[in-house]
Design a protein around this nucleic acid. Sequence first.
DNA 1: TTGTTTATGTATCGATCACTATAAAAGTCA
DNA 2: TGACTTTTATAGTGATCGATACATAAACAA
Lengths: 203, 203
Amino acid sequence: MNDTKKIGRPRSFVEAEALEAAMNVFWAKGYDGTSMKDLTAAMGISGPSLYSTFGDKRGLYLKTIDLYADVDGCAPVVAYEAEPDITKAVRDFLTTVVTYSTQQEGGPKGCFLASCVATTVGEVEGVAERMESAIKATDQRLALKFEREVKLGNLPQDFPALHRGRLLNDLRQGYVHRSRAGWSAEALLEDLEDRVQMVLSWA
Amino acid sequence: MNDTKKIGRPRSFVEAEALEAAMNVFWAKGYDGTSMKDLTAAMGISGPSLYSTFGDKRGLYLKTIDLYADVDGCAPVVAYEAEPDITKAVRDFLTTVVTYSTQQEGGPKGCFLASCVATTVGEVEGVAERMESAIKATDQRLALKFEREVKLGNLPQDFPALHRGRLLNDLRQGYVHRSRAGWSAEALLEDLEDRVQMVLSWA
DNA sequence: TTGTTTATGTATCGATCACTATAAAAGTCA
DNA sequence: TGACTTTTATAGTGATCGATACATAAACAA
């Protein structure tokens, strides 16, 4: 679309690609563990280019968060929405959380938001607001399927869809937390079925 | 006990007090956000004294974690264990989590382990093991009361005590996560009662 | 006293951090 | 062509980081 010629020396990199490369570095090494040197190396651009395009380190970090939130390729949620059967969907969600959180030693682990960004909420200004809206968005997406099932008659009319959406999201955070501390996928999957039933139960 | 005279110039500070002061700094500012300057100022000792006594920054950090784990004055667990009625105990636990996580802007917030240490698990070597054993210990303490209630006949014989202990612990982590992102205590308390019932429910 | 041991205070160390001044390079305009 | 605009690469900036060298101070042992 915007292929109109502009005056001045053209960019030698694609902004979106550089942003994704930066996100992967933050994802793998954390915010504080990532230096500008790491970033310029991974993005394939020089310091001044980075600063003129993305502002400073914090600005770049926030932009990577926005990128992730916009695309939202968060695997567990995608798996959840793809499965028609609600019980299977809940199970798939939690299973995907566990597998994604426990694999990929060293590299990007789990969900960018839950595994990396969440740890910088109290530290980097601007993250908290993004985190809050991201959590709310996920709550809503998870609740949406419950609401559909209520309308279809597969769940009771007074089923607390939003509450259970939030619950599912919090269970995710619990799994991520435990996996960070070294829990194995096997150990995490142990009480998964109990929780699946619990999320869908309604007296 | 160990008040035997030792040769050499005596310490001008009490190790436990200095350690507690250091913990409060880490608690309030996070690991990366805390500089050695912050630490020496808060502990009232000089750099060389700090290094000769506690090793390096990481060593000091790990020692503060051990201190907290040994004392374990984690308010929610204490409140939980103090309340005889199991339903009230579960409610008190979660309520305490919410209130402690949302108050004290700027200063130490929530549980040291859940609010500060948890964010450094993937970053500081030695934290993961401590975090894992701390989580397991809390799981056990929470499950213990459920087991007692089972024996007393207040809960079904096949009630999954350990699973529900873990669940309660994970719900805590979810609340802490949300409070970090800016949730108000009021919003967090909204679906608390639903969860209290859920933790104790058994088909 | 003198020697030994340990802790303290001062004053810094080199390394690394996020960040930028400067000027050449690479494009569009006239 | 040559003025103009923007991005590039080089080479650093001062600040702050975690961690120490050194000499002094304060205890005990002889």
